[in-house]
Computed example of a mutant assay.
Amino acid sequence: MAVEDVSTSFISSLQNPTPTATNSGTALGKDAFLQLLVTQMKNQNPLDPQDNTAFVAQLAQFSSLESMQNLTSTVDSIATSYKSSQALQASSLVGRSVIVEAGSTVVDTTKGMTGSVVVPSSSTATTVKIYDTSMNLVDTVDLGTQPAGTTSFTWDGTNSDGEVAAAGTYSFVASGSIDGKGTSLATYLPATVNSVTTSTNGGEMTLNLAGGSSIALSKVQTIGI
């Protein structure tokens, strides 16, 4: 094989290292590259020497490749640090209350609960119906006429007979009359964070809420105490 071919093959191996070289830790570095250049100069045909610009081009190519590898290493390090920082921040949410878009949540009925309803357009006859786990209607919160926007509501934890309901998971179904049509409305409810799940592929972290539901960290609207 000609010396020029050896040099070209060497550059190619740097750009596309084989799994064996990468895994064994024997990837060629700067010293080996310079030794290759010296060998190439010593063994070139004196009657047809290689152009100096070819050596300069090889050096420039190696320098560019080395810079790209260093940049990749730096970016990987930053990504790892960011992921660790994100995990630490997310873990601090365990045991705290967050406000998320949800249809159900665990309620301590002795304390009641405050949530909110998103009204896309002016609504009349706006209500929030509360159901138990068997989908039995427990109580109805009448919000009347509401303008477009976010409207808060409070459930005192009692049923329609005024008796304190049992603590547990309850569903909240909001609706309103918009332009004369019954429309389902989104509800935002408080929930307690039980644990945090980190992604193995660099994706977003997930908050595991009381009651068994999960939600992405970016979906949290408000963080409470």
Rank of each mutant, 00 (worst) to 15 (best):
G144K: 09
S134G: 12
T150Y: 06
D132Q: 04
M135E: 13
V128W: 01
T151L: 08
S122R: 09
T145Q: 11
N136S: 13
T151K: 11
S122L: 11
T133D: 11
V138W: 06
P147W: 00
T150D: 04
V141S: 01
V138K: 08
S134Q: 14
L143M: 05
T124M: 07
D142I: 09
M135S: 13
D139F: 15
T150Q: 11
T124W: 03
K129C: 05
S123A: 10
S122N: 13
T126P: 06
L143C: 00
T150V: 12
D142F: 15
A125T: 15
T150N: 08
D132V: 03
D139T: 15
T126S: 06
G149E: 05
L137E: 14
T140F: 03
S123R: 05
A125E: 15
L143K: 05
T133S: 14
L137C: 08
Q146P: 07
D132K: 05
P147L: 01
D139W: 14
P120W: 03
T151R: 10
L137M: 14
L137Y: 10
P147Y: 01
D132G: 02
T126V: 03
T151D: 04
D132L: 01
V141P: 03
A148W: 03
T133F: 09
P120M: 00
S122C: 08
S123D: 06
T133M: 08
Y131C: 07
D139I: 11
T140A: 04
S123H: 04
V118A: 14
G149Q: 06
A125P: 13
S121H: 05
N136W: 14
G144R: 06
K129D: 11
S123E: 01
Y131W: 08
